[in-house]
């Protein structure tokens, strides 16, 4: 259980990190919490030649409210988000998701940015990011750009972040409507067999529902959203709408849960998430 040889450096600024990332091409990996990367390296499934430790880029770990957005630095740990007061008051859904991730040790080390960019199809964050209509600020050497959450997750373990770019911030419009995250954890890993984030905008009679763990790519359950658009949220309307939770996707199946069970959980958890969000 030892990694292949690699070099290590700790850039002091984002610009330096970006320059090094470009210089090393595909041979470098960013090290944040390391909770996916290091195990893969120890199994020698990942053998980067260079690790760029960005954990001390303090600018990337701030959590603050700015211009009607809750801004979360990519290096904020799950535990920091779970415990943050601004998060608790302006977007409690994020705190709820953070607290549901892995275990205490994972939450103390793992970062929101690392999780999102790793894009594990069973990670928790993507559901919240999608349901909250978050935007992601991505820095490259030449430019910074914003990406909508809906355009961010491309495929299994693949996002729109280019190899020479760094995810800097996650921005969530606040105050966010009442939300809830309901997750069925895979028993061994704690990852989501199915995680559903729901956000209710009572005024606009609009809901957002996003699902992780069920398909190769986290998705917005638009069928559910459309079925509820303009309607009051009752047990009946929610139950009827939740039937669309896994429509138009190909559910994953593995030894822990078949595709059929995952799709079923999507419906069950969507119902619960909407009920809880509506009650908040």
């Amino acid at each position: 259980m030892s990694t292949a040889p690699f070099n290590y450096t700790r850039p002091k600024t984002l610009d330096e990190a970006l320059a090094l990332l470009t210089a090393h091409g595909g041979n470098a990996k960013l090290l944040a919490g390391g909770h996916s990367l290091i195990p893969a390296m120890k199994l020698r499934l990942a053998q980067p030649k260079m690790l760029l430790d960005i954990t001390r880029l303090e600018a990337l770990r701030r959590i603050e409210e700015r211009d009607g957005r809750l801004v979360i630095g990519a290096l904020a740990t799950h535990a920091e988000i779970a415990a943050n007061r601004t998060v608790a008051s302006r977007c409690p859904l994020l705190a709820e998701v953070a607290a549901s991730i892995g275990d205490l040790q994972v939450r103390n080390r793992g970062t929101i940015g690392g999780s999102i960019v790793h894009a594990d199809p069973a990670a928790d964050w993507p559901a919240a990011i999608l349901a909250l209509d978050a935007e992601l600020e991505i820095a490259g050497r030449m430019r910074r750009r914003m990406e909508a959450a809906g355009d961010f997750f491309m495929d299994i373990f693949e996002t729109s972040v280019e190899p020479d770019e760094i995810l800097c911030e996650i921005r969530v419009p606040v105050p966010a409507g009442p939300g809830a995250y309901v997750k069925t954890a895979q028993k061994a890993s704690g990852f989501a067999l199915c995680g559903v984030a729901a956000v209710v905008d009572a005024k606009a009679r609009r809901v957002r529902v996003a699902v992780t763990g069920v398909a190769a790519v986290p998705y917005r359950a638009t069928g559910v959203e459309e079925a509820l658009a303009g309607k009051p949220l009752t047990a009946e309307t929610i139950a009827a709408a939740a039937r669309h939770a896994a429509a138009d996707i190909t559910p994953l199946g593995d030894i822990h849960a078949s595709a059929e069970y995952r799709a079923h959980l999507a419906e069950v958890n969507t119902t619960l998430a909407l009920q809880r969000a509506a009650a908040r």
Partner: peptide, 17 residues
């Protein structure tokens, strides 16, 4: 090998991709 031992949940999705 290692892929099967630790990556079984991802093999189908990766294969499809």
């Amino acid at each position: 090998g290692v892929l099967a031992a630790v990556g079984s949940r991802l093999v189908d999705a990766a294969g499809r991709r």
